[in-house]
């Protein structure tokens, strides 16, 4: 089926870079002067950014909303994205300076839905650069910020948002101060033991659940092996869980059919869905690993 589309407010613009600064090893935060996008985008949605006006690198790169910048009156004025330098496109982007123009299109994708109906605690599980959606999501669900046309959300606020954040090594962690400032309870894990738990980030979640903690919702973003373990944990403890997928994309708006992933339908059959327009957020029970 092909009904899924980019959000009605999605648009293409050339915006001005306000800042583009390193925040961790190979990791940058870029701030874009775009009051329109800032007033529309919601946690879990993404923006396609092309690293310049030429044709090499050719395609845009998808980056999740990190946060919206507001002026002194609370009006959204700019959008922050955080990205990891992985290839030519992101390397080129990291060399851009404040004042330079940048072609973008967005907001794209379906963001996260509102907080769990009954409030309670929630657990976020992030692997590597997959941490980026959780600052805005945490603020939204804790009721300290609103995004897009949602205004003040109608669900109950969550009482505790705990972020399990894993990375290969301590120098890759970004935004820890932002998360603490936003009131998230952060637990870290590293592959090399240089910060927090020495091992998988999902070990930390498992231990808390074994100790009797019962969040009303889990949300994950990160590498597929981590998401697969998280989906298994969610299933075992019967906790609703959403996963934000990061499949390779060419266009971001449903035209190229690059980012398809197998999704289980309610009738038990499996269908290839475009992550850009039908996701990137999916119920963990539907994701086929």
């Amino acid at each position: 089926m092909s009904e899924a589309l980019a959000p009605a407010c999605a648009a293409q613009r050339t915006v001005t870079i306000l800042a583009n600064e390193p925040v961790a090893k190979d990791t940058y935060k870029i701030t874009l002067d775009d009051p329109m996008l800032a007033s529309q985008i919601t946690p879990g949605q993404f923006v396609m950014v092309r690293a310049g006006l030429g044709n090499d690198p050719l395609l845009g790169r998808p980056f999740a909303l990190f946060d919206v910048v507001r002026d002194s009156t609370g009006t959204p004025v700019a959008v922050e994205l955080v990205y990891l330098v992985l290839g030519r496109g992101t390397a080129e982007l990291s060399r851009k300076r404040a004042g330079e123009p940048l072609p973008i299109w967005g907001p794209l994708g379906n963001g996260f839905s509102g907080p769990p109906v009954d409030g309670g605690d929630v657990g976020f599980v992030a692997g590597g650069i997959g941490f980026t959606p959780f600052l805005a999501l945490g603020k939204w669900w804790r009721g300290t910020a609103s995004y897009g046309a949602q205004g003040q959300h109608t669900g109950s606020l969550v009482s505790l948002a705990r972020l399990y954040y894993g990375a290969r090594s301590a120098n890759l962690f970004a935004g820890l101060n932002d998360f603490a400032h936003a009131g998230l309870d952060v637990r870290t894990a590293t592959d090399d033991g240089s910060l927090g738990h020495h091992g998988f980030v999902t070990d930390l979640l498992k231990a808390d659940l074994q100790a009797g903690w019962r969040p009303s919702k889990l949300v994950g973003c990160g590498p597929a092996p981590m998401l697969k373990v998280l989906a298994g944990i969610a299933h075992q403890y019967q906790i609703p869980c959403d996963l934000s997928l990061e499949n390779h994309m060419a266009c971001g708006f449903g035209a190229c059919f690059s980012c398809v992933t197998p999704i289980r339908e309610p009738d038990g059959t499996t269908d290839l869905k475009r992550v850009c327009v039908e996701g990137p957020v999916f119920d963990s029970r539907c994701v086929v690993f």
């Binding site: 044709n55 090499d56 690198p57 050719l58 395609l59 030519r88 496109g89 499949n247 390779h248 060419a250 190229c256 059919f257 690059s258 980012c259 398809v260 992933t261 290839l272």
Partner: peptide
């Protein structure tokens, strides 16, 4: 159903699909 992923990769000023 089409092909498995990756289905596209960017090359110098080009796209391979």
């Amino acid at each position: 159903a089409g092909n498995p992923t990756p289905r596209t990769v960017e090359t110098a000023s080009g796209l391979l699909n």
